[in-house]
Design a protein around this nucleic acid. Structure first.
Lengths: 330, 330
DNA sequence: ACTTGACATGCAACCGGTTGCATGGAAATC
DNA sequence: GATTTCCATGCAACCGGTTGCATGTCAAGT
């Protein structure tokens, strides 16, 4: 059976070192206020007793617990893990811990999580929030908030501009001689989907090529797979998909129909989450989710330190990553 | 500019309701101790002021902060997100929050995270820990701990037995007439890898079929892809890969060499993390990571409530999920 | 020698709750 | 009507730190 050691308190250390509690506290937080000898004496005593400052007590009196929250709609979506990882790394650099929340795409759950976190974190990062603008504003009134991929005036935000990458994608296809392309769209209520479709249309118009939209119905992979019939029916020679998973579905669907990629058809994904593991390796638009996570946390920590809210709008441009699913039109 | 409301304290509510602080506290934690009228009066006052109990203060005096920690080696590994999600869901059911830690496969980082978490969580779940047995034992002495995929006597643990599924995989191949198969191995220091290789050898011997091991060198996907030459050189007609990513690499490698799957070669993955998005859809061994996450948290919460440590060893069996990458040997 | 100042340390209040015990009044018992 | 019992509530200590202010000491300044 394992016995659990009860915590050593600051008073015990103080007694052992023959000083007041406040001196022990200062030895840990502001050693410059004490004489070097006292500090070493206290440290030695603390060491001997195995003293570790109580995080909760410290948080109570200082109001800073050294935690920030990060809320994402779906951990299982490959877009988020790199973002989470980067956020954690950045927080770590300043000795902050990350509280992670997963909302399952559910605004109710998101609201609940924000409330639950509010008391234990100094600030919050909301990634691709599903909440209404009003709710977000309300929360922002209670604690420092940074948004990722959500554009609300007055609240610091980090936006990934897939438009720039998508534009490059269309230019790339145009250069290869494709005159008729398809956009395989994603969820209609998605901010990113709108952004991407708009960018494609604009670029295509400018370059004088035709673009048709094939809507997605099911979840991304299957949606892409099922869309292949409609895609081929348009007579297009290339497609840009809403995201990599959709693209992967299209790839499978084309393979089933014996349409070779890139020989007979060129395909481009978005978000580059597959890390080139498809065959052939998918040409895609980079996602910058890593930077987004890092920047968001860094912004948040800045706010915490300066106790001020600046109206920051940090935009991350994306680019086309050319691999093996695009080639010249026949 | 957004103004931040400073917290409403229990004293303010007490004043507003004309009662003592203790009564307000009881109204929230043990309303049965108060007369119903008093409770409603207090609640009304609290509501009006927008009072929310201070989590930190409560944690300090009760010693329970309602958080549990979850530490994983790599969020980006698709094995973990479902586990995390399930853990979070289970914690939520008991009004607990999850602290997530990512160690980047680094024992030092893991040690650091455990220490950092220790003060703020009531218990910890370590998934696929990279720490030594001694370190884990040491931590278990300080706070309640549950392990996932790590088998240490005396510490509650949840183990995913991929052996059972791998056995089914070999039986499946034998039934299809394969007499010579390959195991494409994973990281040599991995518990799962050892478990899988052992299970395959045992099953193969029992069924009288030959199994050779082709070692992995690089990270899973590329490793699988590069291993194809060695795999084909053995003259085997089927392979079981350490995990799905490796299998996906093998699939790509085979495709490059114009070996058709399953026509010319049968392939089975492990962990079933790809959700049937490969083409052809990969036959794989289920992973049960969702249950593992759920059970681990549930076990931990039990420990917290009963304040006792039972020597639990919870084993989850896996099974073969047959899809389209396996067929009869030529 | 006397004041002044700097510096090291201690005292005690405070952060915002929880909880064991005391108290007072009403209801129940005799 | 006096005594016991019970229940609702208040008092005050406590959780384990932090921090403004007071105090005492010693060296420098005049």
């Amino acid at each position: 059976m394992i016995k659990r050691t009860k915590g050593v308190t600051i008073s015990q250390v103080a007694d052992a070192a023959g000083v007041a509690r406040s001196s022990v506290s200062r030895a840990f937080t502001r050693p410059d206020m004490l004489s070097p000898e006292t500090v070493t004496r206290i440290m030695k005593a603390a060491e001997a007793l195995g003293y570790v400052p109580n995080h909760t007590a410290r948080a109570l009196s200082t109001g800073r617990h050294g935690n920030v929250g990060l809320i994402v709609p779906d951990i299982a979506n490959p877009f988020f893990p790199p973002l989470i990882q980067a956020a954690q790394l950045e927080a770590d650099r300043s000795d902050f811990c990350i509280f992670l929340g997963n909302t399952e795409e559910n605004p109710k759950q998101e609201d609940k999580l924000v409330g639950r976190f509010a008391g234990q974190v100094e600030g919050l990062v909301l990634a691709s929030s599903r909440l209404s603008d009003e709710r977000i504003r309300a929360h922002a009134g209670l604690l420092p908030l940074v948004l990722i991929n959500r554009d609300i005036d007055g609240i610091p935000r980090v936006l990934i501009d897939s438009g720039s990458g998508v534009r490059e994608a269309v230019e790339h296809l145009a250069q290869l001689g494709h005159r008729r392309i398809v956009y395989v769209s994603g969820p209609s209520n998605s901010w990113s989907n709108k952004q991407r479709r708009t960018a494609i249309k604009a670029a295509a118009t400018r370059l004088g090529i035709v673009v048709e939209t094939v809507p997605a119905v099911l979840a991304s992979y299957n949606s892409g797979r099922q869309a292949v019939g409609a895609i081929l029916a348009t007579g297009a020679t290339a497609a840009v998909a809403f995201d990599d998973l959709t693209a992967q579905g299209v790839l499978a669907g084309l393979s089933e129909k014996r349409v070779s990629v890139p020989g007979d058809f060129s395909l481009i994904g978005c978000d580059d989450v597959l890390g080139a593991v498809t065959y052939p390796a998918l040409t895609s638009v980079s996602n910058r989710s890593t930077e987004a996570g890092r920047v968001a946390v860094s912004l948040l920590l800045d706010m915490l330190q300066s106790r001020a809210i600046r109206d920051v709008r940090y935009v991350l441009e994306t680019h086309l990553v050319v691999r093996n699913t695009t080639t010249a039109a026949r």
